[in-house]
Every structure is written in structure tokens, then in C-alpha cells.
Design a protein around this nucleic acid. Structure first.
Lengths: 232, 232
DNA sequence: GCAAAAGTGTTCACCGTACACCCATGC
DNA sequence: GCATGGGTGTACGGTGAACACTTTTGC
């Protein structure tokens, strides 16, 4: 069966840039190895075509693809940009609505870790050649994340429930691509009244254990709406 | 002739939120009165369907629609967001890539002004009922503009070549929806080294004439790339 | 005791903010 | 001379930025 329209129309797809942190708080992106042409065997962003039969919105489609291709669910997801150059797909004109996602890697890495030939995490500073215009999409996503970090809290979505100050700092350093001053960073965060001191320390480290913190979720959500100015 | 595809696909359109300033430096938006159903006679954003036969990109399509429907050309245009709810168009599923534009109204108001029944400027604070989900698009565009103003220079695109300080200030007040302190605003702008004192004064006013300024274009473009922090 | 990371204060410069009066012009 | 908007400076508080040493733990 074929679907016919009076005028030709481009295909519509969604692609997702999924950010996660590894155990060294390095920023990583989830990529999928393509099994079909074009760009067979190349690494690409998880994503796929909109399926009208599924009665889903753009964001639903993004979530579905992430679930199917990478096994991640219930994550922070936000629209990034729509890429519509005519030649970005060699087959035909495909406009793609790109999303970016933040996931807590320690809780969501299952599929990607167990089936390494299909999905794999790559450091943002050391990505392979990507299919289509996906490098451009990744660049835009990183830029967005760098900007976002300056006026909204992030971290909640990327870090485990309990975390240390240095994990938080390394997260910011990883996103911003620059070293930060420990004391200034600490003071800034303390002044936001965003962290809860759990009165616990981490275990299993070969040095002085650090105190553990969690986010004050209410305050976190409020700051997300209201925004702030995080200059570093 | 019909165009057929193996899977159904949504239609793709572009819509534009065109901002301009009137002679009182009030922020306005350009709307078009629809001549066809659905939403016949309602006001709507200029826009239309992607035409694959025209070999145009998304942004090209946005520019084409603006030219055809409102007679504006060569303007600042930036992608805003893609709206894809299934029921946003009663006819069928139409995903729309929204753009927003900044125009110098004194140089671009021709078509809209001469054919008032078709295109008209409306104050952002007093918009009519809009067709489709266009109010939502407008809201998002205003929000974007308010944010943008804080980290990038704008004004160049909205103001005439020569302008006074108070025009610039009213522009910012209009976008931000709040009064600003004259002296602080002035100092802030002066410190950016963005304005060129033209050593001219305005004429035809019934009070002390104000000095005229223009933007230092090079500096303007540089600041746009680099960004700044404009706290007010 | 030594390696490794945690934890902790102070000083300075800059900038955002609040605030009020005189000036130049047209009528 | 009066109405209208144009034009100007200062003081205070807050915050970003630079900077180094001691503490705690595991080995």
C-alpha cells in the first residue's frame, strides 16, 4: 500500500543526542552503529522516521527511538533544532527534528553497555566519523548544553542520586571544557541552597572519602523555571 | 499527479514570527488574515507549506513566505522551535518549523501598511485570537527574544540606521516588558563600545533634540558571536 | 610516611543598582 | 515661562576571580 499526496513532501525524522557521564565524570554521547545503508557500519545518533500510524508526537517519537535503540527511558529530553538541508540524506529529502537528552549513565547504561556492537558511549572529545550531518547536530547540542548550564541547574539528570562535590565540579568542567576553581565553584553552589548534605561519606576509595550530597529537588525545579546566572 | 510513499508522512510547514518596532518603539508582530479555511478570516502567522519543487531549505522557505505574504526581504531570521502536535491543524498532521525575524519596520513596513486587510502589525501586548496554535508560537518567540537580549546584542535589526538613546532604551523596555534606569542603561551600552556617536541631532521634535547614534557593525557582529552578559 | 584527594578564607577589582537635578529646545 | 524629553555622577553592596595550605584516609 502506498500513501499519496497532491504535493511531494519531505520525510520527517527525529534524532537524539544523548549525554551521559562515565565514572570519571567525562561527558559522553551515545551512538549507534548503522546496520543498513546509507552509511552502513558508520556511527550515528539514535533516531528514526516519524511513524504516523503510531499516533505519536515528535517528542514521543524521540523517546520511542531511544527506548528501542538504546534501552533508555524516563529521561530529560528537550528539542534542540530542526535540520532540513536538502542533501543531508543521500536517499531523499529528510528533515530531522533533533532532541538532546541527559541521562544518569549509571542507571541507564544497560543496553548500551551490554550490546557494544550496536550502541556505545563515546567521549565528546573523541568522537568517530559520524553519518549524515550528525557531527553538526552534536556540535549544536554541546553548544546548547554549555549555554544552558549558565542559566539553569543541570546535574540532577546526569549524576547519581548521591554524589560528591568533586563529581559535580568535574561535570561542569566536562561540559564547559575548562578547569574551574574548587573553592569558588563550591561557594557558588552553596549559595544557591540547592544541595542537601546527606551526612554520609563515600566508601571504597583509596584516599580521604568525600561527603555525599543530593539535590534539593523542589529548589531544583524552581530554579529551573526561574533560571539564574551562573557565571564561571 | 500524486506523490506516493511507502509510509504516511506528515506535512511540513514553516511559520514566522516577525517582530518590528513602531514609531513609539512598541514591539509589534506581523499577522496575516487568512482567506481560506480552516480558520478563515482569523489572524495567523505568515507561513506555508514546504515546496519540494522549489529546491529550497527550511530557511529559504521561511524567507519566501515572508516575501510573498508580507513583502519583507533581507531580514534577520533564526529558527525558533518545531511544533508537531498531531492536532494542531484540523485537516491533517502538519509539523511546523517556526522561525522568528527582526525587521526594521520603517524600512520594511510597505506591504503590510498598504494592504491592511491582508497583513497588519499588532502590538505584542494586544494580539487578536490567532489561528491554529499560533499564540503558543508567539509566546515562545517572545520568550526567546527576552532571553536573547541578555547575551547578544539586538537592535541593529529593529532600529533605523540612525537612532537615539531613548529609542534604544524603549526597544529594550518593550522587549523585556519592564522599565529600565536611563543612566545605568546608558552606561552599560557605552561600556560595550558598540555605538558610534554621529555628531548629529534629530530634527522635527518639539523639545530638545537628542543625539543620533549608529551601531558599530564590526563590533556588533563580533559581540553576536562572542556573546556577553547583559544584566539589567 | 607518603600519596591522593578533600576541605577551607581572604582580598581585590569590577559591576549592577539606586537615586535627582539641570539643560536645551519649541511653543 | 513652561512643558517635554535629553543628558549627566556618585556611593554602596555584591559577586566573580585569584590564590595555598592543612586534613584525612589507604596503602
Amino acid at each position: 500500500m502506498l500513501y499519496s499526496y497532491k504535493y511531494p513532501r519531505p520525510a520527517l525524522s527525529v534524532d537524539c543526542v544523548v549525554f551521559g557521564l562515565d565514572d570519571k565524570e567525562t561527558l559522553k554521547i551515545l551512538l549507534i552503529q548503522r546496520r543498513n545503508s546509507p552509511f552502513k557500519d558508520k556511527w550515528a545518533l539514535p533516531g528514526g522516521f516519524m511513524r504516523m500510524d503510531k499516533d505519536e508526537s515528535l517528542e514521543d517519537a524521540a523517546r520511542r527511538e531511544l527506548h528501542e535503540e538504546a534501552g533508555v527511558e524516563n529521561i530529560f529530553l528537550e528539542q534542540l533544532y530542526t535540520f532540513g538541508s536538502k542533501n543531508r540524506d543521500p536517499r531523499e529529502w529528510v528533515a530531522s527534528v533533533a532532541y538532546y537528552a541527559l541521562v544518569n549513565l549509571s542507571e541507564h547504561s544497560l543496553r548500551a553497555a551490554t550490546d557494544a556492537s550496536e550502541a556505545q558511549w563515546f567521549s565528546t572529545t573523541d568522537l568517530p566519523d559520524l553519518a549524515f550531518d550528525h557531527q553538526e547536530i552534536v556540535d549544536k547540542a554541546i553548544e546548547r548544553l554549555r549555554n544552558k548550564v549558565r542559566y539553569q541547574p543541570i546535574g540532577f539528570e546526569l549524576l547519581p542520586k548521591k554524589f560528591t562535590f568533586s563529581q559535580l565540579q568535574k561535570l561542569y568542567e566536562s561540559i564547559l571544557g575548562q578547569k574551574l576553581d574548587k573553592r569558588n565553584f563550591l561557594r557558588k553552589f552553596r549559595s544557591m541552597d540547592l544541595l542537601v548534605d546527606l551526612n554520609e561519606v563515600q566508601g571504597e576509595v583509596h584516599h580521604r572519602p568525600a561527603k555525599l550530597y543530593s539535590f534539593n529537588e523542589k529548589k531544583y525545579e524552581k530554579l529551573k523555571e526561574k533560571g539564574f546566572n551562573f557565571e564561571i
